[in-house]
Design a protein around this nucleic acid. Structure first.
Length: 359
DNA sequence: GAACCGTGGGA
DNA sequence: TTCCCAAGGTT
């Protein structure tokens, strides 16, 4: 909780919120999922955009959002769609549990709430894929409820405004309290979006434009000249390099052997070419024992490199040719080369296929 | 509470 | 090249 010593006065909070909203009215970003001033937001679109935006840049989200909305215009349409279609539409965005939870959430909203998103933060929090941030964002933006949506932007703005010395993620409860204390009763939705816009365009991680900031006057970090050093963060450990082998089996009629990964865990539910285990001590010299089919496997020169959030990966790529009547091993399926674009292939697998199919 | 879970872009 | 990090959630 916030100690009395560092809690800002009610007057300061109100003045800051007013300054921020005035800035927002002039400089708000126009985004495909954002309702125009005076427009009533569509909770489905607010929710859809918030899920896609999690840990993702606005630029990367745009085309996916448009595609999702065209393909699944309503929560009912999304709920009725097969999971494969949802995974395919998500392919390339990363964090694939978000796609599974998106689908599960749509079905739950239809089954439990008659196809209408609840306006209550607590009810939202009970839905899959909706955590503290997203519940607050939907409550505030879609329903104009007094709630905060504390994302990376807001953490940065608030820790700078109050020069919060405690490092994240430990400081999260404090940041939340400080943000909540600022929320104006009449415009919670605009306030939530204003904080994010400020963090995205003015109060940036590097070289913040304090000169243009509506909160520069009350900002404690600005006064100290230390804005760029916030938020404080715990040092995180780098993951250890893992290696493995990937096997691209090519049938003479141009089909490629694919399989589907287990539903949970890394790249859960996504398509892949057969691969070995990925280990820090993997021996590529002995990779052929992991091949999905007996055959004449040839290694492609070099490695496919990929970096996941918590470890870097290097894959040796092997290819082999097979007769048209070769049966797929258990769990595998032959896919025509021209159909690869329609598969739910994560980027690391696209890299593997690119190397395997290059001449 | 710490670990896990993708990807692309910018500096 | 390397590092950071972007509208986080789940286990």
């Amino acid at each position: 909780m916030v100690s009395a010593l560092i809690a800002p006065s009610k007057t300061d909070s109100t003045a800051s919120a007013a300054a921020l909203l005035a800035w927002y009215d002039r400089h708000r970003r126009t985004l495909p999922w954002r309702a125009a001033p005076g427009e009533t937001p569509d909770p489905y679109r607010v929710w859809l955009s918030e899920i896609i935006l999690q840990q993702t840049t606005v630029a990367a989200v745009r085309p996916y959002y448009e595609r999702f909305l065209a393909r699944f215009p309503t929560v009912e349409a999304l709920a009725q769609a097969p999971q494969e279609a949802v995974m395919q539409a998500w392919a390339g965005l990363g964090y694939y549990s978000r796609a599974r939870n998106l689908h599960a959430c749509a079905r739950m909203v239809v089954a439990l709430h008659g196809g209408r998103f609840p306006a209550d933060e607590k009810a939202l929090l009970a839905l899959p894929g909706i955590g503290a941030y997203t519940a607050g964002a939907i409550a505030a933006i879609a329903f104009n409820k007094v709630a905060v949506a504390v994302d990376g932007n807001v953490e940065r703005v608030i820790t700078r405004l109050h020069a919060v010395e405690e490092p994240l993620p430990g400081a999260k409860p404090l940041v939340r309290e400080l943000a909540l204390a600022m929320v104006p009763q009449d415009r919670p939705g605009d306030f939530a979006q204003a904080l994010m816009d400020l963090g995205a365009t003015i109060c940036t991680p590097k070289k913040p434009a304090c000169v243009l900031c509506p909160l520069s006057s009350p900002c404690r970090a600005r006064a100290e000249g230390t804005a760029e050093t916030f938020p404080r963060k715990e040092a995180k450990t780098a993951g250890r390099l893992r290696r493995g082998a990937a096997f691209v089996a090519l049938r003479t009629d141009g089909h490629v052997l694919l399989r589907t990964r287990p539903p949970k865990g890394l790249l859960g539910g996504m398509a892949e070419v057969p691969v070995s285990e990925w280990r820090h001590d993997y021996e590529i010299r002995e990779a052929l024992r992991d091949a999905p089919l007996p055959g004449v496997w040839r290694r492609k020169p070099g490695m496919v490199r990929h970096v996941f959030t918590h470890f870097p990966l290097e894959l040796a790529v092997f290819t082999a040719s097979f007769a048209v009547d070769t049966e797929a091993p258990a769990g595998g399926r032959w896919v025509p080369r021209h159909s690869l674009a329609g598969e739910a292939l994560p980027n690391v697998m696209r890299k593997v296929l690119e190397k395997a199919l290059e001449s």
